[in-house]
Deep mutational scan, measured.
Amino acid sequence: MISLIAALAVDRVIGMENAMPWNLPADLAWFKRNTLNKPVIMGRHTWESIGRPLPGRKNIILSSQPGTDDRVTWVKSVDEAIAACGDVPEIMVIGGGRVYEQFLPKAQKLYLTHIDAEVEGDTHFPDYEPDDWESVFSEFHDADAQNSHSYCFEILERR
């Protein structure tokens, strides 16, 4: 099963200049909980913004210009990325925008964090048809001392 995991502000903004323009430790914990011990696929820009392999996960970098870091697996196509994951129950696609666009048609599940923030962004989550998805989990949280904005975790499964 292919799943996408993303944090989205208003207007589906997911990033600005290779960074997330908010401070939500709870979302980072949600991300870790849902990706640990699963292969993660990301684009080169996302890889560069993280700066290191995510521990406890097979890191697969999709790029037309593969790098030389041998701590991760470099691939040039969506099919190659899927094959590099091996026989696993769930593959997690973690961004960025172009990689989400490439995998959305193949995805069966979306793990979304909806952030109540209007922020400037240069990267967006692809538009998706809500009628194609069923919400199977939703959990709202107010902003607090650690988390700069209110947010809602949601899991959607393709109908």
Rank of each mutant, 00 (worst) to 15 (best):
L4T: 01
L4C: 02
A7G: 02
A7S: 03
L8Y: 03
L8K: 07
V10L: 02
D11F: 02
R12L: 15
V13S: 07
E17Q: 02
P21D: 00
D27G: 02
A29N: 01
W30M: 15
W30S: 14
K32Y: 05
K32C: 04
K32F: 03
R33A: 13
N37H: 08
N37A: 06
N37R: 10
K38S: 09
P39Q: 04
M42Y: 15
R44G: 13
H45W: 06
E48H: 14
E48Y: 14
S49D: 05
S49C: 08
S49P: 02
S49I: 03
I50R: 01
I50E: 01
G51H: 13
G51N: 11
R52H: 14
P55L: 13
R57G: 01
R57W: 00
K58W: 09
K58R: 13
N59I: 14
N59S: 12
N59L: 07
N59H: 09
L62A: 04
L62Y: 04
S64Q: 15
G67H: 07
T68E: 14
T68G: 12
W74Q: 04
V75F: 06
V75L: 12
K76E: 15
S77C: 13
V78H: 11
D79T: 14
A83H: 11
A83D: 08
V88F: 14
V88P: 09
I91Y: 06
M92R: 00
M92F: 15
I94Q: 01
G97Y: 03
V99L: 10
L104A: 03
K109V: 08
K109E: 01
K109T: 07
L110V: 06
Y111T: 00
T113V: 07
H114A: 10
I115Q: 01
D116V: 14
D116G: 14
E120C: 10
T123F: 00
T123D: 00
F125W: 09
P126H: 04
Y128Q: 03
D131A: 04
D131N: 06
D132K: 12
D132V: 13
E134M: 10
S135A: 03
S135I: 15
V136H: 10
S138G: 05
D142N: 09
D142F: 12
A143Q: 08
N147W: 03
H149A: 04
F153L: 12
E154N: 13
I155C: 04
I155T: 05
L156W: 06
L156F: 15
R158A: 05
R158M: 06
R158C: 06
R158H: 07
R159D: 09
